[in-house]
């Protein structure tokens, strides 16, 4: 029985080795490796996070090189849409050695939020160091309630 388990282990071990070799190969081939599990394709949409803080939801998105006026946010019920345009910052009169960045692009990304009850009047957003943070407060009915014991 135990020999079978160790055989299995060894098999998985060689799979690990193969996977790490493949990943290393991709590392040389595609500099965008590192974003995910090693097999990720370059994203043209910004990466996002969603947090649930009880009273509100918080959406964060990576939007480097975009200013406040370049980003649009739309909320309708539990539907959220973020769109933006990145202006090219390519300098004039320079010779390009390397252009990996995705400048002069636009994107739209939409979500259906997990909470039905968003107080759309009180949604706020901030943009700092290329990270967009949207705070979506829940309505009173959807907020967690403290229950007191009689």
């Amino acid at each position: 029985m135990w020999t079978t388990v160790s055989d299995l282990d060894r098999m998985f071990g060689s799979m690990d080795l193969l996977r790490s070799r493949m990943n290393r190969m991709l590392l040389d081939y595609d500099r965008f490796y590192g974003r995910g599990g090693g097999w990720a394709v370059t994203a043209t949409e910004p990466l996002t996070n969603l947090y649930d803080a009880g009273d509100s939801l918080e959406v964060k998105a990576e939007v480097p090189g975009m200013a406040r006026e370049d980003v649009n946010i739309k909320v309708q019920g539990n539907y959220l849409e973020i769109s933006g345009t990145r202006k090219s910052d390519t300098p004039e009169g320079y010779k390009a050695h390397r252009e990996e960045r995705d400048t002069e692009t636009s994107f739209t990304r939409s979500f259906t939020l997990p909470s039905e009850e968003i107080n759309t009047e009180k949604v706020s957003a901030s943009l700092k160091n290329g990270i967009l943070t949207i705070t979506l407060p829940k309505t009173e009915a959807a907020k967690p309630k403290q229950v007191t014991i009689n």
Partner: peptide, 12 residues
């Protein structure tokens, strides 16, 4: 990242 609450999904 300064975050609050639990993550429902996290891409970065």
């Amino acid at each position: 990242l300064e975050t609050a609450g639990s993550a429902s999904w996290e891409e970065f």
